[in-house]
Write a protein that binds this DNA or RNA. Structure first.
Lengths: 343, 343
DNA sequence: GTGAAAGCGCTAACAC
DNA sequence: GTGTTAGCGCTTTCAC
């Protein structure tokens, strides 16, 4: 194995100089920098990560905590992970994969054994045991998917309120004046902190602002329930020409029921979904997408900022991306505004 | 931070003794072991991973190289990753996530900087640039998904031949005597090393062995093409009561076309698919599943064996799992034989 | 069965 | 702008 001392000898400098060339933590004359660089290349030197971590107390590793078991939509998680790794590499960081199964103990272990410098935690619950632990672990962390808390922690999430509003704006611009909303099962709206609520709020206030007629209803995950809701919506909103669906589980049935009621989709009723991209793609519906790639990138950037001693905003809400899939052409990104920041 | 020296002092022993208690690399009397253990607990000692790696030249980290970009079915990758992490933790290992984007350079980097002890590489191509690199990196590696090579490397894959045969056996046991096979696009069978070929081989020889009538046809990814193939199959195999489909992209259309031809599914024509579980679940079709969980577990176990100086079989073929979804009840695992090992 | 001490390869004062 | 050197926290001889 070739060490820093080998490089130093080969270049005729001190080991520390090699180190400084590598880290840039102190100025090195252009000439020696070149010579050292050459030696590094010739010898194929690669610094030992462990030794570095030991001496420098930085591992250059980020821990990524993912809910790999179930619940969450797997392709979304995957895309997010992909984006995290790519962005991390741009910052010369590696990514340690940790499953949510390990719980708070996993965080303690990774921090305690100095395996990582910071944490990226996806899908943190409303009163997650990991939040207090994360706080007194003293390592920077960024939470994703549920902007539950702000207490010193940094969060990133999709701006669901904007997502709801975006659907309305898009439809209004297409000329629709009467828009329905088919949401998650009723129980989801009960615990009123959730993203479902925020989406609905965004939808409702946008409808008010735009002065269009609207009705919102929850829908259970049964085909019959969906059929009933669709009928009710068509009954209530007799001129309804558009429907926003925020319930990926029943999306297929909604379209089916509309057709069964004699409405063509999208000619008679335009459907806009808030759901993962694959699903909308498959059903060829216009949709607001969860931008997993942006989420991942942003999360890493926030974490890097914290590692560098900066104080990024406590909450970043990413703008929803609306893809139009009405024409024969491929999906078309309609607009992409900047994120909202809070705190 | 609490170090090994702190623990040693607290327990009234030498640091080396603490180390040996931890690693078990030399016998320690029951009494001191207890005392040390107690001190570790009281002080909340956690060994520094970097220091360990530096002194011991083992990182206790596995590098997991995943094709995160596209192509592969994301949920399958995710499940596999999950299984890898879980199994790795059982062996007290952590997992470093690396994307295939980094290519051979990524492997060199991870090995060169001593970030990981071994590699798990998914989706290795027929003549992948990473194979030679992996070989002379001198670190144990396990390849997944394409048993391309055997040359000193260890591979794990689904036993596609058994998968094809399994479908036939299952159908024959249900009383079917005339079985069609609708496969991948023709081009896929051209490069004859692939899994498509092996599945077909398994299907055909099982049909021969069982003495049932069979016809196999490739299918392009167009609705019309699928329709034509379905018609041809029904024409050729006039008594066809079962169809094996190894083409996930057109699976939905196959069922649709069969119904359009007046055949009820599964009453008139039983369909068995070889595809990811979600898809079969969604269409409520009996299917042979890619056992991502078993794959991940087995891969880690093989890698650990190599890390411990053992010589595991060069190729392990995992038995396909067939889930029956004909009844009203949930999916039912029909059989689960042991893996095949080669070399 | 246990201890003492020499590194592992690197970083970061502290010197000049 | 560069060199010297003392650790970082652990493992592992070597000695008893």
């Amino acid at each position: 194995m070739v060490t820093i001392v080998d490089v130093a000898k080969h270049a005729g400098v001190a080991p520390s100089t090699v180190s400084y060339v590598l880290t840039g933590k102190r100025p090195v004359s252009a000439e020696t920098r070149m010579r050292v660089g050459e030696s590094i290349r010739v010898l194929g030197y690669q610094p030992h990560a462990g030794a570095r971590a030991l001496a420098g107390s930085r591992t250059n590793v980020l821990a990524l905590v993912l809910p790999l078991r179930e619940g969450v939509h797997l392709p979304v998680v995957m895309r997010f992970a992909s984006s995290v790794v790519t962005t991390a590499r741009e910052h010369d960081m590696d990514v340690l994969l940790v499953t949510a199964d390990e719980g708070a103990a996993g965080l303690r272990r990774v921090a305690g054994t100095s395996r990582a410098d910071g944490f990226l935690v996806m899908d943190v619950g409303l009163d997650d045991e990991r939040v207090p632990v994360l706080r007194d672990l003293g390592r920077p962390a960024v939470l994703l998917g549920h902007p539950t808390v702000a207490n010193g922690l940094t969060c990133v999430d999709l701006d669901f309120e904007a997502a709801g509003a975006r659907c309305v704006d898009h439809l209004v611009e297409l000329g629709h004046r009467s828009i329905g909303f088919l949401g998650a099962p009723g129980a989801v709206y009960a615990r009123n902190t959730g993203f479902a609520q925020r989406t609905l709020t965004g939808f409702s206030s946008a409808a008010m602002r735009r002065g269009v007629a609207s009705t919102a209803l929850p829908a259970e995950r049964h085909r019959d329930a969906v059929r009933a809701v669709v009928r009710t919506l068509l009954g209530e909103l007799t001129r309804m020409t558009a429907l926003v669906v925020h319930n990926e589980a029943v999306l297929g049935w909604v379209v089916e029921c509309l057709r069964a009621e004699g409405r063509r989709v999208p000619e008679d009723v335009a459907v806009v979904a808030i759901c993962p991209d694959e699903l909308a793609e498959q059903l060829r519906l216009t949709s607001v997408q969860l931008p997993a790639d942006v989420l991942g990138r942003r999360a890493v950037e926030l974490l890097m900022a914290k590692l560098n001693g900066q104080k990024p905003p406590a909450l970043t809400l990413l703008p929803p991306k609306l893809f139009s899939r009405t024409g024969q052409a491929g999906p078309r990104l309609v607009v992409a505004p900047p994120p909202r920041q809070v705190g």
